[in-house]
Design a protein around this nucleic acid. Structure first.
Length: 215
DNA sequence: GAGGAGATCGTCT
DNA sequence: GACGATCTCCTCT
């Protein structure tokens, strides 16, 4: 693998739409107790500030979403539907809300560990891994959070650009082609805005049905 | 394979 | 008290 360059806060100090595009192809890396988990980001969604009705920041700053109003490059983890965590990264300068939701990853390393955290059984021989099993590890916001052991208690408010952080994002020099934009998934407000970005034809993009509001 | 509905609980009103 | 940036199981075709 090529040498890794960890992203700095400058990377996130700009419009969430630019960050969401730029994050595609980057590596999300968790290092803890000598175990390294990593996955390539293949799908993201941009959530703008208070003028984006679908964003958690739309109603202004609350105790829950205060990370969004903080400095760029911090993890905003929230609990949804009573059973899932979702990982966002704050964007823009302190005082300006904005974030990018990481929706799907292509597993790269520590696959056995991630599968175990997801409750997925893999054969001992990596050659026998089923594509469907690999896809189900992290193709969705709740799934990738579970695969990386991401929880609100553990990771909310964590600086993803700090050298001491166990959760960081890096680039390895790989280039991404065929970035496609489309409507965001699972929301009603501002659903038509094309703020979801994914790598076209990548099998690890989450496969949720998109419900568009009736005209 | 596609579509629908239930599960389950933190957060906000 | 209502709702939600989801996932999985079950049913139907």
């Amino acid at each position: 693998m090529a040498s890794l360059a960890y992203l700095t806060s400058d990377f996130f100090d700009r419009d969430p739409r630019k960050v969401a595009r730029a994050l595609l192809g980057k590596l999300l890396i968790r290092r803890s107790r000598g175990v390294s988990l990593s996955g390539r980001i293949v799908e993201t969604e941009a959530y703008l500030g208070e003028d984006d009705a679908a964003a958690h920041a739309a109603a202004g700053q609350t105790k829950r979403n205060s990370v969004l109003f903080g400095p760029p490059g911090f993890a905003y983890v929230y609990f949804i539907y009573g059973m899932h965590y979702c990982l966002n990264v704050s964007c823009m300068k302190e005082g300006e809300a904005g974030c990018v939701l990481i929706r799907a990853l292509e597993p790269v390393s520590g696959i056995e560990r991630m599968a175990a955290l997801r409750g997925i059984e893999l054969p001992k021989d990596p050659k026998l891994y089923k594509p469907s099993s690999l896809k189900s590890i992290a193709s969705g916001p709740g799934r990738l959070a579970e695969a990386f052991g991401i929880t609100r208690e553990r990771d909310n408010g964590k600086n993803l650009t700090g050298e001491e952080s166990d959760l960081r994002i890096a680039e390895d020099g790989s280039r991404v082609k065929n970035i496609t934009a489309g409507p965001r998934v699972g929301i009603v407000k501002s659903a038509a805005r094309p703020l979801r970005y994914f790598i076209a034809d990548n099998p690890y993009v989450s496969g949720r049905k998109v419900k568009l509001p009736s005209p």
